[in-house]
Nucleic acid binder design. Structure first.
Lengths: 153, 153
DNA sequence: GCGTAATGGTTGCATATGAAACCAAAGGCG
DNA sequence: CGCCTTTGGTTTCATATGCAACCATTACGC
C-alpha cells in the first residue's frame, strides 16, 4: 500500500471555506436566475440598484467600496443600467471626475417590484431557521468578516 | 419629493444571499491566493485534489456531483492536473467511457503539504469562534442546504 | 499658477466559465 | 444482432470578469 495516509483524512465538506463558498454559490445562482430571467439583470446590476435604493445617491467608488466589486465590473453595470434608463448619472459639481448616481423613476418602479420578490425568496430560504438562529448566523458572519479584515492587514 | 419610499428600505448588508456570497467570496479569494501563488493551483484543481485525497478513487462525474462544478470545469481541472503529473487517469475496465482518477505519488506529496496549510488557514479564520459556534455554523449551513434542495425540487 | 502626482472612471486584453454541440462507448429494444 | 437513446467526457463558442493601461480631472509641491 502506497504511503497514502497522511495521518488524518481531509474532508472538504467540513472545510469552512469550501462549504461556505459552495452554499453561497448555490444560493446566489438560484437567486440570480430570478432577476436574470424575470428582469434581465445581472448580479452586479442588481447590487448597484439595491445600494442605490438603500442609500439614495452614490458614486461608483462608493458602490465599489460597499460591494467590493471590481472597478470595471461596477462601471459596466452602471453603464448598462443607465442605458436601460434605470438610473441617472450626473457629474458632481465640485469634482467632475465623480459621477453621482441615483435611481430613475423607472428604477424605483423596478425595485418596488424586485425588493419584495427578493425578500420573499429569502424568507423561504431561511424558513427552517428560527429568528434567533437567523440572527446568530449573521452574528457569526460578522465575526468572520472581522477576522478576515484582521488577517488581511 | 419623488415617490421614492417603497415602505421599507432594503439593506443589502442584512440580506442573507448577498451577505453570504460576499463573505464566501472574500474567504475563497484569500485562500485561492494561497494555493495559486504557492502551488499554482486553481480553485477547481484544489477541489479535485482534495476530493481524491478524501475518497481515494473517483470518476469525473463523481467529482462533479460532489462539488457541483460544471462538467467542463472539472474536465479542464483534471486535464491540467494530469499534465502536471499530480493524478493518474485510467479508463475503467467495465466502462471505457468512465475514467478512474487517483492521486499520483507527486499528488500525495503535494497534498501532504497543502492540507496542513489549508487547515492552519481555516483555524486562523475561525479563531474568534468557539467550538460550539463553529459547529453551529455548520449546522445552520446544513439546514440551509437542505432547504435549498427542497426549494429546487 | 505650473508640472507632477493622485484619483475616479473607462476601455482593452487575457483568462475563466457555463451552455450547448459534439464524440465515443454502453444500454435498451425491435 | 442493428438502430436509437443514454451517458461520461471533451471541445467550441459566447460571455463575464479581473487586471492593467489609459484618460480626464483634481490636488499638491514649489
Amino acid at each position: 500500500m502506497p504511503h497514502d495516509a497522511p495521518a488524518e483524512r481531509f474532508d472538504l465538506e467540513r472545510f469552512l471555506p469550501y462549504r461556505l463558498d459552495s452554499l453561497a454559490d448555490r444560493i446566489s445562482q438560484a437567486l440570480a436566475r430570478l432577476y436574470e430571467t424575470r428582469h434581465d439583470l445581472s448580479v452586479a446590476q442588481w447590487r448597484v440598484l439595491a445600494w442605490l435604493h438603500h442609500r439614495e445617491q452614490l458614486t461608483a467608488k462608493q458602490i465599489r467600496e460597499a460591494t467590493r466589486m471590481d472597478k470595471a465590473r461596477v462601471s459596466r453595470a452602471v453603464q448598462a443600467l443607465e442605458d436601460r434608463g434605470l438610473i441617472h448619472r450626473r457629474a458632481a459639481r465640485e469634482d467632475q471626475r465623480r459621477h453621482e448616481l441615483r435611481l430613475s423613476e423607472a428604477g424605483h418602479a423596478l425595485l418596488a417590484a424586485l425588493v419584495p420578490e427578493a425578500r420573499a425568496w429569502e424568507a423561504e430560504l431561511v424558513a427552517p431557521l428560527s429568528i434567533a438562529e437567523y440572527r446568530q448566523l449573521f452574528e457569526l458572519m460578522d465575526r468572520l468578516e472581522g477576522q478576515l479584515a484582521r488577517l488581511e492587514s
